[in-house]
Design a binder for these strands. Sequence first.
DNA 1: GTCAAAATAGAGCCTTGGCTACATTTCTAA
DNA 2: TTAGAAATGTAGCCAAGGCTCTATTTTGAC
Lengths: 140, 140
Amino acid sequence: MELPTELIHATRFGKTRSAQSTALLEDYVELIADLLANEGEARPTDIARRLGVAHATAIKTVSRLKRAGLATARPYRGVFLTEKGEALAQRVRIRHRLVVDVLRAIGVPVEAAEADAEGIEHYVSEATLQAFARFLRGRS
Amino acid sequence: MELPTELIHATRFGKTRSAQSTALLEDYVELIADLLANEGEARPTDIARRLGVAHATAIKTVSRLKRAGLATARPYRGVFLTEKGEALAQRVRIRHRLVVDVLRAIGVPVEAAEADAEGIEHYVSEATLQAFARFLRGRS
DNA sequence: GTCAAAATAGAGCCTTGGCTACATTTCTAA
DNA sequence: TTAGAAATGTAGCCAAGGCTCTATTTTGAC
Ligand SMILES: [Mn+2]
Ligand SMILES: [Mn+2]
Ligand SMILES: [Mn+2]
Ligand SMILES: [Mn+2]
């Protein structure tokens, strides 16, 4: 122990920064999984509309997903998730629900809970997730 | 009511995106206030060390703070907060503590609570903050 | 007081994630 | 079957926020 304060803080900020850089990919993967499940296909236009960005932005980010090994897509065909992408989507979905449920349990109004969870979900560690699950179990 | 689902989602993602763009400024302002209070001065080198970034990065971001009307700084002199910057720092500090306290109350280990709060704090709305405060009051 | 070390500043590069404008491909309705 | 609409893709722009490398200023030890 006895790490200097600056290093402790720097480490925390570093974690936050790296979480930030994956937050967008997580949202895309979660959304694509949702579209595939509910609509049967995930087209760039639908992704863009749901995220509120221009279609060109969505297409560009999808190619980043491909580079990251999370998605596949052939020109003019729609987007699919790799095994890795599916697995991430699964984890993200669980996290999302857990965060919303905890916020609701604490007394946050449903719309605020859903909106805030969209940001919060990307910054919740394993340890915190487990505490969330325990907390919900303990009061059900 | 009866907004289309896509618009609801798009709005949430938009809020998250704009929160993300102010997250960094909030951390800087919070840190500068802390350094000013505890060390009497906030020098770019110290800011950089605490954030875990290169000093050039810190200097560049400080100039963004200046542009945003949150800080002042004269060459080779150290950084200060404007009224607006002080006010923001105040709000951020309160939010930070509230998030940590709620996480702790739910059973999150202290180190995880501190680390996760560093990210979560930027995505907590007014409504959620109020619910947090009520929750803590109700169980003290 | 001098001068070397430390701090500060600036230039220039990269990636991300927005955007608009334009080009191409696919789909669909007549 | 084919033209127009819709979807998709590409190019090029911008700002933010990282970085390294270099220059300048300030500070502190002697
Ligand atoms: Mn999200
Ligand atoms: Mn989500
Ligand atoms: Mn923070
Ligand atoms: Mn904080």
